[in-house]
Design a protein around this nucleic acid. Sequence first.
DNA 1: CATGAATGAGAATTCATTCAT
DNA 2: TATGAATGAATTCTCATTCAT
Lengths: 232, 232, 232, 232
Amino acid sequence: MPAKKPTAEDQTNESSLGGAIDAIMAAVEQEEGAMTDKKRRIVEAAIHCFAENGYAATATNTIARRAGVAEGTIFRHFETKKDLLIRLVRPLFSPSLLPLVAKELRTETERADGDLRTLMCTILANRLAFADRFAPLVRILIQEMRFHAELREAVAENFPVGLQIAADTVLKPYIASGQIRAVEPALFLRSVISLLVGYYVIRTEVLPAQEWDDEAEIGRIVDLMLDGLRPR
Amino acid sequence: MPAKKPTAEDQTNESSLGGAIDAIMAAVEQEEGAMTDKKRRIVEAAIHCFAENGYAATATNTIARRAGVAEGTIFRHFETKKDLLIRLVRPLFSPSLLPLVAKELRTETERADGDLRTLMCTILANRLAFADRFAPLVRILIQEMRFHAELREAVAENFPVGLQIAADTVLKPYIASGQIRAVEPALFLRSVISLLVGYYVIRTEVLPAQEWDDEAEIGRIVDLMLDGLRPR
Amino acid sequence: MPAKKPTAEDQTNESSLGGAIDAIMAAVEQEEGAMTDKKRRIVEAAIHCFAENGYAATATNTIARRAGVAEGTIFRHFETKKDLLIRLVRPLFSPSLLPLVAKELRTETERADGDLRTLMCTILANRLAFADRFAPLVRILIQEMRFHAELREAVAENFPVGLQIAADTVLKPYIASGQIRAVEPALFLRSVISLLVGYYVIRTEVLPAQEWDDEAEIGRIVDLMLDGLRPR
Amino acid sequence: MPAKKPTAEDQTNESSLGGAIDAIMAAVEQEEGAMTDKKRRIVEAAIHCFAENGYAATATNTIARRAGVAEGTIFRHFETKKDLLIRLVRPLFSPSLLPLVAKELRTETERADGDLRTLMCTILANRLAFADRFAPLVRILIQEMRFHAELREAVAENFPVGLQIAADTVLKPYIASGQIRAVEPALFLRSVISLLVGYYVIRTEVLPAQEWDDEAEIGRIVDLMLDGLRPR
DNA sequence: CATGAATGAGAATTCATTCAT
DNA sequence: TATGAATGAATTCTCATTCAT
């Protein structure tokens, strides 16, 4: 018995991904169709490994061990290692995901009932929740985008759509009603995203040990965006 | 050596590092001491390769070929591939670099002569120039930080110092004089950095093909920061 | 599988291990469990190479070529080159081997029926046969012991047991019956082993070209041991 | 300053060779002629390293560091690594060494004045002293002989001479005078050497921690040789 | 579907040796 | 004589992928 037979035990369930994995697996399943148990475990393990060590530094052998399957099994389900990467990230651009976000946005807008501050807080909070839910996938996407044209293209295709939706839904009505100055939509979006991403990175990567009160922090960010640094 | 704004051309041809490399090499040389010609070429090639393809996906053999040296020569100068990575990035935390930035900040503050908007624009412009000058190193640092504890530690050690300097030099005097509302320094810094980084990424990574007018964009960012979205 | 006396011919042609290899492979198989054909061939080739050129001077690539397998295959079955070495030598300390020797000793003792000379001749002859049978492994063990703590430990663990058995089975009864002077067991054992090893080395390493009559030589050694140099 | 400059400090003077090194260096010097300080240190370091880790596992770089010289310096004094090995061991076969031993033997014989036991004890004690004095060289010789034809040839050329001397000086006269039975010289020599080597190995390699009383042990060995195991 | 032994190209690293200074 | 940077072939080990079972 030369090579140790991998077992499910080998899966180090240190689950640094938190409950996120369930939402992700659901999204992946929607893309991939029905999955056998082994395939599901491969996907899960690959997300773990890619997110933690990066694509290039992850051996298929490592994924197999973590998934508790034979190395060959991976290649029964995914043509190549790269194919695995791409199909993992794909759900992020699922046609069912972006419209969902758009719909959420619209609902939030209606609920806020014209109160700009409430609206922005809700939007940011929801985006933050989304990021948390898909954190490992997003992390993989961001890490690997630079090195894989396929991923870049997927982003390029889908991102503008999201921006347009956001601009149309949020920005225009409020500029029209005079509650927001006439800023460029691109600047507005970039700024909101930058501030949110900045907070997200600090919270999860730079100072994860610290206690964070998302609601309060988002409130401060929104206030800064709305009122600026200068005293009124 | 003035910062050279990267353009789309740089993305495609072989030397995407542009003139930046000279400033970097000078900084590296200050850390490493006198370098033989071959060692210099190894450093240069490694920066290129790591920045373009990532650390894990770069073979030492590739670096050697690009540097025009034998593969063994790399290991005469750097104990391991990882050692090479770490010593490349080190100049970013050079004791001669951070104080320099601090000094620049002070000079800028004095020059602005109390005009907040001018000051912030100058600061952002200078930071942007710095990023451009050390772009490849910064890119390597950001890409690899997640995977190498040594890099994270170096950042953790040096970053807070920079923040403190910024807070003391810029924020406090202006809050004292009533030109800035009493916001938390952490929030202020995070926001400024987020907005600047967001712009930098968009400009160099997401839409490098577009023409960017740094001065104007920085002006808009500063206005947003100072006045907020709401009409005054 | 009777011991085959090595001759000068064996020294020069490729398979200097002669028929010994079969007995060895059986012992290795008992330790390693069922082995694939390729693994068996790796073991065989490694024994050959290590015995002939030493561990440090043997390239895994050489072993692979001799075994007719890909180099990678070696590392599928053995974690490192050193692991291969240690697992090769292990059968020499197999729990199934030492008791076997002890049992042989007892049988020999009984058969000799009190005749000391016959007994000692039988014992030496059997030990010589054992050495011949496992010659390559023994050679590897002796050559590499100095450089690998793991091997030394294995010897240190197992050797004393063998000595004790020998002392209890052979020496004590004969001292008790007055056929042997009251010598220290340690001295006795060391002497017998030294004389036998000395003969073995001369026969196989120093003067392998010469014809050796094992039975007669052992007789002379035993006579010397029993009667000494002085005329009686 | 990429590579650390080796200094004399790097010589780990844990001197496992004991005072032996002086006698050896004198012998080497007689072979090599006058030596520069650096060359002497190379020789010393090489003896250390080869004895401790074996020839194949010792890097010239390691020798250089231990000697506190540049790697290139080794090749100024010795054509190749193998040349270094061979010239190190050569003093063991120095024309000045073997006759010396022969002369010692004759002196010992005369002094013993016919008393066989005294003579043999003296001889063994002297041989043991010799082994101790040249231990590292002897160790290297024994370890590497199997792998280097040059060494084997040197042994083959010189060993028989020593045997002949021993036989003529010690054995023949005592057989003639009836103090020793008419045993084969070869058997006699082999036995004495085996017993002595056996003791030496046990004392220095197997149980070096134990306290050894050379004189007493040699006495026991000689008694065993002379009187045998059977009671008289 | 699943396995896991086998592959061989390629990875990082080592090392004896050369050579300009 | 001494240096140490440079070399490039060789070495140990890794890894994505294939394929017979």
